[in-house]
Simulated scan of single mutants.
Amino acid sequence: MRRSTILRTVLLAVFASMVPAEAVGSAGIEPYRATRPPQPFLEPADERERLRRMLDRALPITWVFTGDSITHGAKHTHGWRSYCQHFEERVRWELHKVSDFVINTGISGQRAREVLSSFDDRVTRFAPAAVFLLVGMNDAKDGVSGRGRFRTDLAELVDRVRQLGAVPVLQTANPIDVEHSPDREDLPAYMDIIRSVAEERAVFLIDHHVFWESQSAGVIDDWLSDPIHPNERGHHEYAKKIFVELNIFDPASPTCSLEIP
């Protein structure tokens, strides 16, 4: 074969590799088109139903959990999974939604105002379909004078989540040992604010506080690591409450039926 023929053949091959996929499609080859799939959280109107549809569909989504030390799950879990990690195991493994991603941006010691000020970094950049918000434990240290600010910040957090097209989920925090944490004695009032904002803005609420209060004092003590933080048992109870509210609790599943010695 002449050298010029070889060169022409090589150039034709290179040119063919540069032809857009759409041009190839006319020859009977299906072109690849990177399209954004329809987002299941844009409908229906009821956000609780949207969440359940997210869990029923195969479409991969991102779940973000943000808040304070309870969501952070550091130290007081004693090496066990936090409630966010139980959620991840239930959804990504047991429900087979392996392409979903669960992201935890909780930071110990923070208030609603700090989550709000770092919202883009902690929430927006992950393009979530749902955002679980758990704040109030540290805000309660501001007492009566801080209630108005907390309500305003919480409502703005809800609004900003919805502006992303995502579903906000508000959570109340567990009861505490007030005798040994008197600086948070106003916690019940802050939990009432969370309930009020949830009702006013029709936000899906997971009320851990009420559930814990329905237990005996001895049980609550068994679920706490110190006067305010849930331990490994407490975190599992948080997770189970979420599963029940989302209708994905199954007593036969290893995650739901976990026994912690």
Rank of each mutant, 00 (worst) to 15 (best):
D159E: 10
P128Q: 07
R48F: 00
F204V: 13
E232A: 15
V244M: 11
R149T: 14
R111V: 11
A129H: 10
H72T: 00
A129Q: 13
G165V: 10
V158K: 03
P251M: 06
A202R: 05
R162N: 10
A13I: 14
V10E: 03
R50T: 07
S118M: 03
G79E: 09
T152E: 12
A129P: 09
E49H: 01
T71F: 13
P175N: 07
I107A: 07
I6E: 07
I6W: 06
R81D: 10
G25C: 06
R8N: 02
P60T: 06
H78K: 07
L116T: 02
G79F: 10
V203K: 03
A45Y: 08
Q110N: 15
A21W: 06
I176E: 03
V178T: 14
T255N: 05
P44H: 06
N231T: 12
E49D: 10
A239W: 00
K240M: 07
A112R: 01
L154N: 00
V144R: 12
L205D: 02
E179F: 07
A217S: 10
R195S: 06
V98Y: 12
Q110P: 01
S108R: 15
I248M: 09
H76P: 00
D46M: 03
S69V: 08
N104V: 09
R50S: 04
M54Y: 08
V102H: 06
D222F: 12
R125Q: 13
S82Y: 08
P44K: 12
E199W: 00
A155E: 12
I260K: 06
N138I: 09
R149K: 13
Q163A: 10
I107H: 03
I107N: 00
D159Q: 09
D226Q: 03
A16I: 14
F119L: 04
F41I: 13
D153R: 02
Y83N: 02
G73Q: 08
I220W: 02
E43L: 13
A140Q: 09
V91Y: 12
K141M: 14
R57S: 15
L11D: 00
G218R: 10
W223Q: 09
L154Y: 04
S4H: 01
I206A: 02
E88Y: 02
M18D: 02
P254W: 10
H96N: 15
A23I: 06
R201Y: 04
S117I: 10
Y83I: 11
T71W: 09
V167P: 08
S69A: 14
F204L: 14
E49L: 14
P168A: 01
V244N: 05
F150Q: 01
V144K: 06
T77D: 09
Q215A: 13
P175Q: 03
D226L: 00
G148V: 08
S4D: 06
P40Y: 03
G234Q: 03
G25Q: 12
V203M: 09
L11C: 09
F101E: 14
E47C: 01
H72G: 01
E156S: 01
V10M: 05
E30Y: 12
T77A: 15
R195A: 11
G218M: 11
W93I: 11
A130D: 02
K97I: 02
P37C: 04
L154F: 00
D139C: 02
S145I: 02
A45N: 05
Y83L: 05
N231M: 08
E47T: 08
